[in-house]
Design a protein around this nucleic acid. Sequence first.
RNA 1: GCGGAAAUAGCUCAGUAGGUAGAGCAUCAGUUUCCCAAACUGAAGGCCGCGGGUUCGAAUCCCGUUUUCCGCUCCA
Length: 492
Amino acid sequence: MSKATDELFKNVISHAKEYGFVFPSSEIYDGLSAVYDYGQNGSELKNNIKTYWWKSMVQMHENIVGIDAAIFMHPTTWKASGHVDGFSDPMIDNKDSKKRYRADQLLEDRIAKYEAEGKTEKAAQLQQEMDDALKAENLPRLKELIIEQEIACPVSGTRNWTDVRQFNLMFSTQMGAVADDADVVYLRPETAQGIFVNYLNVQKSGRMKIPFGIAQIGKAFRNEVIARQFIIRMREFEQMEMQFFVRPGTQKEWFNKWKETRLKWHLALGTAPEKYRYHEHTKLAHYADAAYDIEFEFPFGFKEVEGIHSRTDFDLSQHQKFSGKKMQYFDPELGEDGKPYGNYIPYVIETSIGLDRMFLLTLINAYEEEDLSTEEKQDSRTVLRLHPVLAPVKAAIFPLTKKDGLPEKAREIMDKLKLDFNIQYEEKDAIGKRYRRQDAIGTPFCITVDHQTLEDNTVTIRYRDTMTQERVPADDLEKIIGDKVSWKNVLK
RNA sequence: GCGGAAAUAGCUCAGUAGGUAGAGCAUCAGUUUCCCAAACUGAAGGCCGCGGGUUCGAAUCCCGUUUUCCGCUCCA
């Protein structure tokens, strides 16, 4: 990260706090690591991003519907999805090299070594002991095994180990009033499973026919080993996901279609295309047969914002296995051989975008420190060039001075506009200062009421991006603003 | 989790031979102002991150702790 971009990123973070976009969580108690709150302008912007996504995914596709599943889910869900076994790793650190290892992998390496040396009996015995310890979640026993086997750190060569600790991706809590092991439930680490477990409900109640999609926006929770870089990696975050169910064999074409559709969604906001790129996963997760990320160039480099994954029939098959409920779909359409496609478990294409990352992307992309200096005077302004559909406040209305009936007239105009748009009224400070304050939160229009307004009911409208102004009839404002902030501009 | 750095008003920061805290901007109340920030007057605002120790006395020295930043480590 260069000094200039480093500086820019820091400025965006303090701007976000200063203007009510993002605050550190529980700040009066020194904050809570990697948790953030959205402020008065941040929540407006976030809601607008959600609306844009929801409209373009659900409203614009007649074969996609939206749901809102609970964060708590039956614990078996996470056994089926692979989260319980796959993401609770026993970790151990070497105190000298400061390197961290998975305790089970250190032992696996030793087993492999025994096998290579032909000591199969020793290998089998250790394997058994390790499996027992893992099964019983006996962490001290794992450490004993590492000590007994005299396993040394490959880097430092020492056997100076910390205790074995469990790294759990998922947050757990108790469901009942009385704490009991049987009542442990997890806070979902991804929203996707809420869609998969409702696949049958939605398909039947909505009489959905393959191909169809289920969309959802919601919170998810992950215990990150290390969470940093502002809201890029948070412990509590929000996802906007859509699972698209397709006929087996057609996943590749649907994958390509969604890959393109999703990038278009990003570009429709007017972001420079060179800021985006695709990143192909070469190492695929256990459930995927293809995966692309859409990455955005943040000040600290390209980072994933959205993933498009071909998840095969893994999830539905797993849920069928664990729940005993048939996840099959009967496809009556005739294939090339003139026979119906019949029963199958659908394949799934997932589009999953991090709302908080999208939020940060939007803020960084919009943020500009503009130098307005002339020969006589040094001047600058900070402006958020947000797309008008996303701007938290659509227009601000100012009386030029706070006397002569101008405030009353301004409020009268505002009362009409506020029925359609989020409007702010300000009468304090010099007019220029008020303009600049609105620039800082990305308000696209400022409307000023002056003495002429009292005579002919015209006002000046000042544009954020160009800082130019025009005189227009007050009665035209609804249409002028409405045209610019209409969702049509980005959905078409 | 490890190592390094930092923490003083809402923000940016001053404040060392240890002696009861200061500026600019922002805020609030007025004045002025008919269109692009920093005009005038006044006011308010500070467990100097938190806890302990040394000292007659600590923002300042020592120890611990929390949070943030930078590296490393981990990551679907």
